[in-house]
Design a protein around this nucleic acid. Structure first.
Lengths: 187, 187
DNA sequence: ATCTCTGGCTAACGTCATTAGCTTTTTGGC
DNA sequence: GCCAAAAAGCTAATGACGTTAGCCAGAGAT
């Protein structure tokens, strides 16, 4: 038989998985779907990825790094409240742009060795943003947690259609961001 | 054969589903597991429940109502900041007590006719709690959303082990609650 | 030219949801 | 009390999926 090779790689498999998730939601992430998209039989994926569980982890890393990149450019050249607001808006914007992808992001990256590095980098960006407030290490951690809780809470609810009433969501988020900024040192 | 009937009902099936979720997590919620727990063959469950999708909805209603009950008792006899703080703490406490169950709660109840009633009741409790601040209808909605985003964000991150560092989570939540209360009218 | 590794394949199995169709129990009307 | 019909259970079968085992072709190195 003369069948040209698909020329797959772990990266290409994750690319396909990302496309599947973007198009059909996290629930549609199945090895069968990824195989179909890459033009390969399902078991062939095991040559590049250990299984569905590992694919999910690799996808998580990808999304984590993707978000970190956006955050980094969002805070570039900003500081103080300006930077924090940019961070919060970048978070929401990312989730709005890629809701299904966001659902693929692990919420506890630090607990998986494979994800810890990517999670740590994202944490670093936030901690760096807070540095100008002169927060001590522990205080910075508490504040980072608050920022994350607020951004994740709002964004995940918005992405899953959790806000059913017609009021403008931009207004709600502005109010939330204002409240958070007011709670930072020096305000 | 003389096989006594199991005497199942939709309610009993949901009870079993809840037990499965509490013990083994939402990912373990399978008709096979529920059937095993109720001592019945898997297809027999279809006599009481239309399928896994409906079971999930019924479970969602149950959890939603359960939470609403806690919220109601939490705000009883309180008002203003005191009531809002009680609400936020009741939210977190519920999720800590039943993390897997919370994951079974739909975030967008208003979009499913079957869930809308239960979701609306929960919303009512929060809106009633905010009444003493004299917020107009639209402002009350924005504030309710903020409260929900904060509570859901923190609680879901905590429940999924999203806070990896050793700092005390009670301290973080206190800070968050304080910030939110400070953002309410009259503070 | 051959050897070996790599990346594909098919076949098979177990788990799950779901449907169809059968049997037994319960129950309501008489 | 008796009988029909509805209710509640069952087994068997199907199809999607993940996963494993084992086979085969092509590419590169020797």
């Amino acid at each position: 038989m003369v069948v040209p090779r698909a020329g797959l790689s772990a990266t290409a498999v994750v690319d396909a998985a990302l496309a599947v998730v973007d198009e059909a939601g996290l629930g549609a992430l199945t090895l069968a779907a990824v195989a179909a998209r890459t033009g390969v039989a399902t078991p062939s994926l095991y040559k590049h990825v250990a299984g569905l569980a590992e694919l999910r982890v690799l996808l998580g890393i990808r999304v984590l790094e993707d978000m970190t990149g956006r955050f980094t450019t969002a805070v570039l050249g900003r500081s103080g409240d300006d930077a924090v607001a940019a961070l919060l808006h970048a978070y929401r914007d990312y989730v709005r742009a890629h809701p299904a992808r966001y659902a693929a992001m692990p919420l506890d990256p630090l607990h998986d060795p494979a994800l810890a590095a990517a999670g740590g980098k994202q944490l670093e960006v936030v901690l760096a943003t807070l540095r100008s407030y002169g927060l001590t290490d522990s205080a910075a951690v508490h504040t980072t947690r608050c920022l994350r809780a607020v951004a994740h809470g709002f964004a995940s609810l918005e992405a899953s259609g959790g806000f059913g009433l017609p009021e403008d969501l931009d207004d709600t988020y502005d109010q939330l961001v204002r409240t958070v900024l007011a709670g930072l040192p020096g305000n």
